[in-house]
Amino acid sequence: MDPKRTFLSWPVVRQVRAGDLLARGPAVTSEKTRSLQPRTATADRVVQSVCPYCAVGCGQRVFVKDERVVQIEGDPDSPVSRGRLCPKGSASEQLVNSPGRQTKVLYRRPHGTSWEPLDRETAIDMIVDRFIESRRNGWQDTDEHGRPLRRTMGIASLGGATLDNEENYLIKKLFTAAGAIQIENQARI
């Protein structure tokens, strides 16, 4: 007889002692269940973040193990959200880890019928070439009355509402200095 098994470990006694009278809770958990630990408990570190969906700005806690995000939960410290997340915020771990997420640069040549792989450095260089050329092609020094315009209509951009303030700042700064004015984001929509 297992010396640890005593009167106290009899099922009925366990049920009464644990307050689990219907034997659906702790009284009947298996060794396996007892040894399970939430991913949040085994994470190497927890990083404070903010939900990327709507503009309520719910606090998030990002749980990282082995340099991989293993779970994202609501941050109870946040006075805005008090630990809660909606279905989208609760699913945001999948936004990071979803198998469908694209992690490689792809290229579709003019009139092409499929994607081709492309090295990121080459892609950025190609974009620089096109940026400079289209900037020149769409350049307007003055309007029809000779008043200064100093701009290009060859380049446009859409996006920013999902980006960081610092990112929007660099985008606006670079495009404005390049003379590109057609810079927009979801706030117009």
């Binding site: 990083v47 700005g57 945001s92 990071v96 694209q102 490689k104 003019p110 960081d164």
Partner: peptide, 27 residues
Amino acid sequence: TEKIGTEVFFLPPASHVEKAGSFTQTQ
């Protein structure tokens, strides 16, 4: 498809947990 001359570059970005930065929320 064959008549569309648009050259497309698809570049994947970092997600919200893969970079540091600030969001300004609705208030």
